[in-house]
Simulated scan of single mutants.
Amino acid sequence: MNKIIFKIAFPIILVGLFIIIIFIALNYGAMSKEVYFVFIALSIYVFLFGFATGQNFATPVKKLLKRATELSQGDLKTRVYLETKDEFGELSKIFNKIAQDLEESKQAGSRAEESIDIKVKAKTQALDETISALEQKVRNRTLELDKVIKEIERQRDEVKNKDEEIAKLKVQIEDAKKIVIPDITEKPKKVSVKKNKVEIKETEEPKVEPEPIVDIKPSI
């Protein structure tokens, strides 16, 4: 910042000293000692005036630079208030307007982010509820399937037991077939003894003669 003050003050001081030196050179013979003291005082005044003018110009620039640095670091509430009515005052108003617009934009972005967060949380909660309902349905289906599987296993065991019983019955039937059983369908045989010989003849079934058919004519 001292460089800015020096750059502003140096031309003013240089011009003032140049004017004083020219005036002294032109009136060197006619000047008294009192005039020299006046010129020395004027020279000191030129120095002070130059640095004061530089300081006057550098102070608003210094404030603007400081606030601009704060704004660049994220402090959107920073403002510059200059009471001057020159270009620096207009520049401070423009700076404040830019800072205000940035702050409002940030607030709008924050509100939008909050709204998005709320919507995302609502969607997430709804999704969690849906997932919980689906998990409950899956658990219920799993229990039902377990019951069905147990019932199928029970029926399979019953079928297996039935098959074993049928196999045992088949074995018993096969064993029963091996036992000799007389044929009850054979015709009865007649045993007769003739002269020391035994003859066995099959008895014939008695023949049943059909009854005669009587033709009965109705009497007229």
Rank of each mutant, 00 (worst) to 15 (best):
114 E>L: 10
113 E>W: 05
140 N>S: 14
166 I>P: 00
133 A>G: 10
3 K>W: 03
51 F>N: 00
74 G>K: 00
38 V>E: 05
123 K>Q: 14
127 L>Y: 05
48 L>E: 06
6 F>K: 09
161 N>T: 13
188 P>S: 04
176 A>V: 00
123 K>H: 09
209 E>P: 09
166 I>W: 10
22 I>P: 00
7 K>C: 06
198 V>D: 01
120 V>M: 13
61 V>K: 11
180 V>T: 02
127 L>C: 08
205 E>T: 15
211 E>F: 03
98 I>T: 05
154 R>Y: 10
131 I>N: 06
201 K>A: 14
89 G>C: 02
39 F>I: 06
83 E>V: 06
183 D>I: 02
177 K>L: 06
89 G>N: 02
75 D>P: 00
116 I>D: 07
190 K>T: 13
161 N>R: 08
197 K>C: 07
32 S>T: 14
60 P>Y: 00
12 I>W: 03
3 K>E: 11
59 T>R: 05
109 G>A: 12
61 V>A: 06
45 Y>H: 10
116 I>H: 07
78 T>F: 04
110 S>R: 08
94 I>H: 02
127 L>F: 08
98 I>Y: 02
133 A>P: 02
165 E>L: 11
103 E>L: 02
88 F>K: 01
111 R>F: 07
22 I>Q: 13
142 T>K: 12
6 F>E: 10
160 K>C: 02
211 E>S: 11
33 K>F: 15
142 T>E: 15
136 Q>G: 07
39 F>A: 13
165 E>I: 07
88 F>H: 01
2 N>V: 10
82 L>P: 12
142 T>H: 09
214 V>I: 12
191 V>R: 04
120 V>P: 05
25 A>T: 14
27 N>G: 05
80 V>T: 02
211 E>W: 01
116 I>S: 12
156 R>E: 13
160 K>V: 05
140 N>T: 13
146 D>A: 14
8 I>M: 14
9 A>D: 07
71 L>D: 00
46 V>T: 04
25 A>S: 13
172 Q>V: 12
120 V>R: 04
176 A>Q: 08
52 A>E: 14
197 K>P: 01
206 P>A: 12
125 Q>K: 15
215 D>K: 14
87 E>V: 09
120 V>E: 08
31 M>K: 11
14 L>N: 06
133 A>E: 15
155 Q>Y: 07
167 A>Y: 07
15 V>K: 05
57 F>E: 09
213 I>G: 01
122 A>T: 09
95 F>A: 00
16 G>T: 01
209 E>A: 09
152 I>Q: 11
60 P>G: 03
119 K>R: 12
136 Q>A: 15
159 V>A: 15
10 F>C: 03
189 K>R: 15
133 A>V: 08
167 A>Q: 13
38 V>T: 14
52 A>P: 03
107 Q>S: 12
186 E>P: 06
65 L>C: 01
114 E>H: 09
92 S>D: 03
69 T>D: 01
167 A>G: 10
